[in-house]
């Protein structure tokens, strides 16, 4: 399908905070109470519309265990947006945000838009992290913030779409050089009939290999 832009996203955060469930809710509109463990990386894709333009999101959903950090680092390259997720019912997942953020800043493009997500907002009775704390952390580090529930789908669309809006605005402002695919943005094929989509995919692994 033709698209105006393609953005690469990466979802990061501690294991078990609901990264794969957020992705599944966003791409398939369903919730799996017991999701398979993610080893390495999994993928999702969805088309959204912003400002009347079709934008394809290519989402990299990563493994959260600390031991896998060195592997995850190679997935940052060429990401235009990151969803940094913690679990509002587990304080330690919030405490680890700083190291995640350091990792993200160090291994990605400096313009990458980061959305901080406090997931599992449906579990109010087990809440360990106040919403204000999430907001404060986001403010302090210049992130966008939202609380979501992959279970009830609350704010899930918004989280993914608002990130894209922010990226889109940066493009309009000229912050992103869209001709440099290392920024995680790719302009859609101008002539869809030549089916350049098929040959234009990028793993985002090589220097300059962007997002697609």
């Amino acid at each position: 399908m033709a698209y105006a832009y393609l953005f690469k996203y990466i979802i990061i955060g501690d294991t078990g905070v609901g990264k794969s469930c957020l992705l599944l809710q966003f791409t398939d509109k369903r919730f799996q109470p017991v999701h398979d463990l993610t080893i390495g990386v999994e993928f999702g894709a969805r088309m959204i519309t912003i400002d009347g333009k079709q934008i394809k999101l290519q989402i990299w959903d990563t493994a959260g265990q600390e031991s896998f950090r060195s592997i995850t680092r190679s997935y940052y390259r060429g990401a235009a947006g990151a969803l940094l997720v913690y679990d509002i019912t587990r304080r330690d997942t919030f405490n680890h945000l700083t190291t995640w953020l350091e990792d993200a800043r160090q291994h990605s493009n400096s313009n990458m838009v980061i959305m901080l997500i406090g997931n599992k907002s449906d579990l109010e009775s087990r809440r360990e992290v106040k919403k204000e704390e999430g907001e404060a952390f986001a403010r302090e580090h210049g992130l966008i913030f939202m609380e979501t529930s992959a279970k009830t789908a609350s704010n899930v669309e918004e989280a993914f779409i608002n990130t894209a809006k922010e990226i889109y605005e940066k493009i309009q402002e000229g912050v992103f050089d869209i001709n440099n695919e290392a920024n995680g943005i790719k302009i859609g094929p101008q002539h869809p009939t030549t089916s350049s989509i098929l040959t234009s995919g990028q793993g985002g692994q090589q220097a300059g290999g962007g997002c697609c």
Binding site: I39, G40, V41, I71, S74, T199, Q202, Q205
Partner: peptide
């Protein structure tokens, strides 16, 4: 051509 590197699919296969 597509920059599909082995780490993307092999990690899961080998680990499990």
């Amino acid at each position: 051509t597509n920059n599909l590197t082995p780490d993307i699919y092999l990690i899961d296969w080998i680990f499990t």
